[in-house]
Design a protein around this nucleic acid. Structure first.
Length: 292
DNA sequence: CTCCAGGGATGAT
DNA sequence: ATCATCCATGGA
């Protein structure tokens, strides 16, 4: 199996894959196994280089957005202590370029779910409905096509632990399979029109739409506001004020974080999730109260 | 056990 | 426009 070597400066593979933007890469040997579209591969990082088995250099460079001017993007963040801490914590984190359908479908399943469980759902869908690919001794599955999911049923999908999200995923898959919704064409739309099209899909609201606009349509200004980001903005930028409404948060985010707001958001999200006591596995209690 | 999670849709003020 | 409620499931 051929190994290719790719220079990758200002990039941290592990941080990027653990930052809650993509959910199917799995730790393997000293790196990660996953798929870029239909291409199965293994990637490991050694310093400022990537070693890749199973993929081409252009494909990998594009997926991991190695062409983003990361230093320049980070310099464009607001110059405040909150962003400085996040920037320092998230060195090498890149907002990657994901396939549109895969990204949309995955974030439809993400509502009111922890990252660990989104991973679980993603793998269940892939194993059950996705085309199998082998790389060495590893078997992987592509994300299922809209056509394949459209041909299932809600009760089938619920077997993947989707809960109430099954209905939305099915309905959206059917809109895309029928050609009524054309994700690829929507790339030509303005931000407002694109958001409108996405929000018209079942299970897609402002948050999921912004995730897709950021992670799959490469619009780095899009600023998804989830519970973590809402909490962070409220605690760090609205100190002493009454709890801001959703509209207030959105207006603030759009005006304050600017052209690379999506990147700033991803840095704030990862920093908050990994440093808050909620985000990490708590240390086991040495002295636990006696049970019963 | 309880609390909460990268929310969205719907219906009532 | 803002708010309440419901929707499943599992991690911590």
């Amino acid at each position: 199996l051929r190994t290719i070597d790719i220079p990758a400066h200002d990039f941290d593979l592990a941080v990027t894959l653990d930052s809650g933007q993509v959910f199917h890469w799995q730790k393997h040997r000293d790196g990660f196994a996953g798929m870029i579209g239909d291409c199965a591969m293994y990637v490991e990082q050694a310093g400022t280089r990537l070693r890749v088995e199973g993929g081409s250099a252009p494909l990998v460079r594009n997926y991991f957005a190695l062409d983003h001017p990361l230093a320049k993007i980070c310099r464009s963040f607001p110059d405040d202590a909150v962003m400085k801490a996040a920037r320092n914590f998230c060195r090498g984190l890149r907002v990657i370029r994901q396939p549109k359908w895969e990204c949309l479908a995955t974030f439809i399943t993400s509502s009111m779910k922890q990252v660990a469980h989104i991973r679980q759902i993603s793998h269940a869908l892939r194993r059950r409905y996705g085309g199998a690919k082998k790389i060495g001794d590893l078997e992987m599955h592509a994300f299922p096509t809209p056509e394949r999911l459209a041909a299932t049923s809600e009760s089938e999908l619920r077997k993947c632990a989707l809960g109430y999200r099954a209905k939305n995923l099915l309905a959206t898959a059917q809109l895309i399979a029928s050609g009524e919704a054309e994700l690829e064409q929507w790339g030509a739309l303005s931000d407002v029109d694109l958001r409108g099209k996405l929000c018209a899909l079942p299970g897609v609201g402002a948050k999921v739409a912004n995730c897709v606009i950021l992670f799959a349509y490469e619009r780095l200004r899009a600023f998804p506001i989830d519970v973590w980001i809402a909490r962070t903005l409220t605690e760090k930028y609205f100190t002493g004020k009454r709890k801001p409404t959703e509209a207030k948060l959105r207006a603030f985010a759009e005006s304050y974080f600017g052209e690379n707001g999506g990147y700033a958001q991803q840095y704030l999200f990862h920093h908050a999730r990994k440093t808050s006591s909620r985000g990490r596995t708590p240390r086991p209690r040495k002295l636990s109260a006696p049970r019963r």
